[in-house]
Design a protein around this nucleic acid. Structure first.
Lengths: 358, 358
DNA sequence: CTGAAAGCGCTTACAG
DNA sequence: CTGAAAGCGCTTACAG
């Protein structure tokens, strides 16, 4: 019955036990067909009996099969959010190479939906065996996902999930609950009547990402539940236009003196932080997302109260690895929706956060 | 000069380029000696020129070399802290198997230093190629580490670091700063004059672990810096002895009515939480360590204010993997001291923490 | 539908 | 000090 556990059984062993050649066993293992009913049954029986575990190392070495993965993500500069995600891709790439899997990155502009559209069009003519897709523009990802389904190409979502697709997996936070946590951290010591500024970045095309919208819903939901009575005021800000932002915010704060809190639902809370620091508004609590360099500095300086992070490096790494395991071993991730932890960073614990990108 | 990047160069290629056989190249690659000066030089030159990267998969398949790793850790029951650490070990084990590396666990009783001593004695007669050691009893680990140095066996520390050893790596938090974070979370809304209870578990042998001592130092240091004026009172508690603990705590709270905060520096804050819940002391803020089941429940119930966690699963996983990479590829971890993030868990974000053990 | 044989890149005795 | 040859466990044409 129970065979000697420690001697691994190989294909030749299976072949001998079933009275066939290794090639036939191989056909059964890979469902390549062209095997007689009786051999099929016999081999499967043996496979089951000995609980055959293929040696993946040998398989990889022998097959020489090459896979290419496409990673569809925003373009980034050093120190920005997507640079951390990219670090995870790079790490996964190094591991994947051992299994003859290579990675190609395709970039779009996260503030310009047209750039994403254009990129998707290009991808129609590209050959790849799997894709990791950052779902910022969810409405456009959905139809593209259907095309991939038709092409039989597996894909993984990162950043925020889109439930109605056939993704192999999702890696990212629950955006809604990440919004709840922001509200908790911000309102903890806020008078229930205070107003709150919401900093937004002006988009080309249309408003906000999938993720930011969900975070705001979670944020509002928490405040509602806790009986918060203040107002939320939106500030439409620009990247790298300090003068403009200052004007907008000056006016906003002037008009609404009850403002005692601030939040951004994307990774640019350093903009609001810069303003508050310049104006010495130490009375305003500020919460934002993502441990990018400029946010981290503002947290260390005490201008930002808390940052919420979502393990971008892990998202990148696990996205690629999920596809690798699927392609090499036909092994699905244990769960499709993989919510990353919602990390809370304060001045006191931020220094260790980046050390361990895993 | 720069060769075609994408065609991998193999040992046969090197051999041909150097005008020798693959066996000689292999000897050079592995410093096995028995190679003439001139061949050595020529081969090394070629190796450098083509930037040779061995195919580890092929190497592993061909060599059939077996390694055994020893993991020295506390015995645990399901739901306890070390069970999470163990989950990381198990995951690493699965990966390591591919490279012919197996893991043996050796358990001691974390509340009994004699059990650790006994275990170390046993390990002297065991054969293994690397060790992951939980450093709870630091004074005893140090001499044992020296023995390993002499035996030429690499080792990795987890839980808390011991600087003066030759560990290949350390994976764990900065215990001191984890104490600082506890103080920040506890004292945030505490009156500077309030007293604080420190819950301790009575040890057999001697007091507290390495880690708990450092956390307490960090804790006290933060309070000192912030001008905290209250007192710290120790409660010597027992595992699984609710009646006894209740007596001790009843008396303590009676004698010190200024107590408004509580902390434990190990993972048993559920004991204090159980007491506070039973006595309906919602006025006492409680902070503890580690997301074990019973702590998580108390956080969800609102009895515990915050938990601080240290990614035990990652510690286990990375500890084993560091040894694997060293044994298989002679690759050292990039840094020796790998501080894990100090994670902060509140009621609002705890639900996602366990999903992603990485 | 089936099997013998070569090969993936490396390591390991073995004979010289 | 050196090299020819077999082998790790699996896959892949190829011939039947």
């Amino acid at each position: 019955m129970a065979d000697n556990e420690n001697t691994t059984v190989r294909i030749v062993d299976i072949a001998r036990m079933a009275g066939v050649s290794v090639a036939t066993v191989d056909r059964v293992i890979h469902n390549r067909g062209k095997v007689s009913e009786e051999n099929l049954a016999r081999i499967n029986e043996v496979l089951r009996e000995v609980n055959y575990r293929p040696n993946l190392i040998a398989r990889s070495l022998a097959s020489g099969r090459q896979y290419t993965l496409a990673v569809v993500m925003p373009r980034f500069a050093q120190g920005e959010y997507w640079a951390d995600f990219d670090a995870g891709i790079v790490r996964a790439e190094a591991e994947a190479r051992r299994y003859n899997i290579s990675v190609r990155k395709f970039f779009f502009d996260q503030y310009d939906r047209a750039s994403f559209e254009k990129l998707l069009a290009e991808l129609r003519d590209e050959a790849f065996d799997g894709a990791v897709i950052a779902t910022l523009f969810a409405e456009m990802v959905t139809p593209f996902a259907r095309e991939l389904d038709e092409r039989g190409i597996p894909y993984v979502f990162v950043d925020s999930n889109i439930p109605e697709c056939n993704q192999l997996a999702y890696f990212g936070t629950s955006s809604f609950d990440a919004g709840v946590v922001a509200a908790r951290l911000l309102s903890d010591r806020l008078d229930p009547g205070s107003d709150i500024v919401v900093g937004n970045i002006i988009h080309r095309g249309d408003g906000g990402s999938n993720q930011c919208r969900s975070r705001e819903e979670g944020f509002r939901s928490y405040l509602r539940e806790k009986g918060f009575r203040g107002q939320l005021h939106y500030a439409a800000l620009r990247l790298d236009d300090e003068g403009y932002n200052r004007e907008v915010l000056d006016e906003l704060f002037l008009r609404h003196p009850a403002i005692a809190g601030a939040v951004t639902f994307n990774s640019t809370c350093y903009i609001l932080a810069g303003y508050l620091a310049a104006r010495r508004r130490t009375d305003v609590r500020l919460v934002g997302y993502d441990v990018i360099r400029r946010n981290g500095q503002m947290l260390g300086a005490g201008v930002v109260t808390a940052l919420i992070a979502q393990r971008p490096e892990a998202q990148g790494y696990r996205g690629v690895m999920a596809l690798c395991e699927w392609l090499v071993e036909r092994r699905r991730p244990e769960t499709t929706v993989n919510h990353m932890p919602i990390d809370i960073l304060l001045k006191e614990n931020i220094q260790y956060y980046k050390n361990n990108l895993i």
